[in-house]
C-alpha cells in the first residue's frame, strides 16, 4: 500500500495462472517493486484489491500463507465484470494490487488448540491461507481436520495439493454432493459429513466459509456438536469499493467489513446488525 494514497495500487505482474474449475482460476502475483515484495507482511485472512485498470477493482483473499512469500496467490470465481477480465489474464500481464486489507484470522489465539476447517466451493480460498500457515507451524496446533466439499469433483479447488495437505498433517475429508465415476472420497453435503465426522468441540476452533446455505446448516451442526459462538469463525462478503473504511459501502451497522473484518467470530456477528 502507498502510505500517502490508500487508493493507489502497487503494480504487479501475474506470474502464473492456474485453472481450478470451470469458473475459478488462481493467480500467482508478484509486486513489481522487489523491495516491497520482500517486505510485504500480512496475516492469514487478510485480503487484497486486484485492479484491472479500465475495468475496476475487486476484493479477494490472499490465499497463500505469509510463510510462503514467493508470490501472493488469489483464487477468483468468475461472476461479473472484473472477475471476467481476471480470467483472461496470462502470465506476464500487469495488474494492480492493494494489500493487505482487513483484519485476518486470530491465529495466535488458536495456538495449542484443535482446529476444524469447513469449506465449500470457493470458500476454501480463505481457509487455505490459514491451513497452510498452520501446516508450516504444525507444532503450534493440535488436530487439524478439514472438511471440504463441492458440487462435483471438478468443482474442488486445489485438488493438486490435497496430498501435500495430508502429508503435512491435516485430516482432510473431501466430499461431493453426488456420486461420480472414479470418486473415492465421501459423497454428501458438507453439513451431513460434518455430522458423520463429529469432531469434538472440546478445545477446538471451527473456521467456516462457503455459500450462505451451507454456512447456515453447518452452524446448526456445530451447535449440536457443542461449539459455542466464540469457537466459530467465519468470513463475510460485502460489496466493497475503497477497502479502507472510507467510502461507506460495506457497513453492517457501525462495523465496516473492510476494516473490522472480513473475519468475525459468531459471537461478534450476533452483536452486529443482522444485515447479511
Amino acid at each position: 500500500m502507498h502510505a500517502h494514497n490508500p487508493y493507489l495500487p502497487e503494480l504487479a505482474t501475474v506470474q502464473e495462472v492456474i485453472g481450478e474449475t470451470h469458473n475459478i482460476c488462481t493467480l500467482r502475483v508478484v509486486l513489481n517493486d522487489p523491495e516491497k515484495m520482500k517486505n510485504f507482511q500480512f496475516t492469514p485472512g487478510q485480503v487484497g484489491q486486484l485492479s484491472i485498470f479500465g475495468v475496476g477493482e475487486s476484493t479477494f483473499v490472499i490465499n497463500s500463507p505469509p510463510t510462503r512469500m514467493d508470490y501472493l496467490q488469489f483464487s477468483v470465481m468468475r461472476v461479473g465484470e472484473v472477475t471476467q477480465r481476471i480470467h483472461l489474464l496470462n502470465a506476464g500481464d500487469q495488474i494492480g494490487v492493494r494489500a493487505p486489507l482487513g483484519n485476518g484470522f486470530p491465529f495466535e489465539e488458536m495456538k495449542g488448540k484443535d482446529i476444524l476447517f469447513v469449506g465449500g466451493g470457493i470458500g476454501m480460498a480463505p481457509l487455505r491461507t490459514l491451513l497452510l500457515f498452520m501446516l508450516d507451524n504444525r507444532q503450534d496446533y493440535g488436530d487439524i481436520t478439514v472438511i471440504y466439499g463441492a458440487r462435483s469433483p471438478h468443482d474442488l479447488c486445489y485438488s493438486y495439493e490435497f496430498d501435500q495437505w495430508r502429508s503435512g498433517g491435516a485430516n482432510l475429508v473431501l466430499t461431493v454432493d453426488t456420486e461420480h465415476p472414479g470418486w473415492k472420497e465421501r459423497v454428501g453435503f458438507v453439513p451431513t459429513v460434518l455430522k458423520e465426522e463429529a469432531p469434538s468441540a472440546h478445545n477446538r476452533v471451527a473456521i467456516v466459509c462457503g455459500p450462505p446455505i451451507m454456512i447456515k446448516f453447518v452452524l446448526f451442526g456445530l451447535k449440536e456438536l457443542g461449539f459455542e459462538d466464540d469457537q466459530i469463525i467465519s468470513t463475510l462478503e460485502k460489496r466493497m469499493k475503497c477497502g479502507v473504511g472510507i467510502c461507506g459501502r460495506c457497513n453492517m451497522g457501525s462495523t465496516y467489513v473492510c476494516l473490522d473484518g472480513p473475519v468475525f467470530t459468531y459471537s461478534e456477528l450476533r452483536e452486529m446488525v443482522p444485515e447479511l
Binding site: 487508493y7 475496476g56 477493482e57 475503497c242 467510502c247 459501502r249
Partner: peptide, 23 residues
C-alpha cells in the same frame, strides 16, 4: 460522503474516479 469508484478508459488511457453515490 459515501462514494463509488469506477474506471473509464479510451484506447489505452483512462482514469479511476470516485463519484458521489447514494445508499
Amino acid at each position: 460522503y459515501c462514494f463509488n469508484i469506477t474506471d473509464e478508459m479510451r484506447h489505452s488511457r483512462g482514469e479511476r474516479m470516485r463519484s458521489w453515490d447514494s445508499c
